[in-house]
Design a protein around this nucleic acid. Sequence first.
DNA 1: TAGATTGTTAATCGATTAACAATC
DNA 2: TAGATTGTTAATCGATTAACAATC
Lengths: 215, 215
Amino acid sequence: MKRGNISQNVIRRLPRYMRHLEGLDAEGVERVSSAELGKAMGLTPSQIRQDFSCFGEFGQQGYGYSVKILLSELRGILGINKSFSVILIGAGNLGHALIRNFGFGRYSFRLLAAFDVDPALIGSEIAGVKIFSIDYLPEFIRETHVDIAVLAVPGLSAKSIANIVTKNGVKAIWNFTNIELGMDNEGVLVEDISFADSLLFLSYCLSESTAEEQE
Amino acid sequence: MKRGNISQNVIRRLPRYMRHLEGLDAEGVERVSSAELGKAMGLTPSQIRQDFSCFGEFGQQGYGYSVKILLSELRGILGINKSFSVILIGAGNLGHALIRNFGFGRYSFRLLAAFDVDPALIGSEIAGVKIFSIDYLPEFIRETHVDIAVLAVPGLSAKSIANIVTKNGVKAIWNFTNIELGMDNEGVLVEDISFADSLLFLSYCLSESTAEEQE
DNA sequence: TAGATTGTTAATCGATTAACAATC
DNA sequence: TAGATTGTTAATCGATTAACAATC
């Protein structure tokens, strides 16, 4: 499987493809063409075929794609079969929401533990996930293989915790704080979820559309 | 201000510019050149100047940009001075997190009210925000101008609630559910925050980088 | 004035779309 | 076989980068 210079645009579309195909699979649909999928998702058939062809030949001329086969290929490409291990740092409201409602297991992520500074939380359990003191974090990471650390802490502690986890060998950070960690921690992958950026995009669009109405 | 065909790429960079400039402003920095800003953000000076020039001429030759002026221009462009009104639907863990920790007020969003189905929550207040029964939602929207509805409900009720809010005149939906609303509700803006898509992107990158090591 | 840096035009690069031979 | 649809190559379109005159 020789690849590595596939554009981010393509990769960011893969989870969407997967979700749509899961939907079709759940409905009992067995085959789908790039034309049908494109119509449902608002993409051109060309783009869909180009995207898939970055990774292999998953379809059949004259037939289309088998939903189940394509789904299983996409799962493989996205690394779902690797069952990456995850720890959560910060068990506040957002941390609770992630543990209880996100469903790490749905895509085979293994949520091993959560960490917090609050003595009222330490030692307790949420939906089967134990909450440890953050003091125990470095030791835990050294003793246990952790792929991904979820940062759901206040912005102020983001940088110091990012340092702790990267120093102790975590490979990736899923960053919910509004602090950009990118530059400092070379070698670690960082994926930001910025609520503010997302809402401000909406704000821009609203602002534009109301401005048009007044013209 | 004649514009309207500015690419999404540009617009999605604007909040990042704003945050960096807020940082500089807080440090007391008064001026910044596109070269300095580019270095700090990992962008080319050319791109930064191109981006800004979509909206006007905010700099001075030989000097650069006044941090305060640029910041205020960006705020204007993003619609922050319009103080858009927001309601939150779903006051579970994620809803709590948004009310308590997100800080709608920081960018002048006015969070008017929250809605939920849980009788234990209805009538209570979180950080000054009242929680109403979801039965009251249509009436509330008709009586009060609501720009943005935040959907922090379980996926199953996403579509029906999206219909309710759009029918009653809400202009935009900030969608935290894993349901894509785009196609159905024509005329309403939808911005998705998909936790799963974001984590799966990380999963892909991790998967690739571990594959490389084994070569 | 000389140096610096913008705003903008032109050049390059990459991503999307269209077309079509291959083939199920 | 005939019809349909892929995978891929070529064409187009758009976004980023480079260059430079304008000017503070």
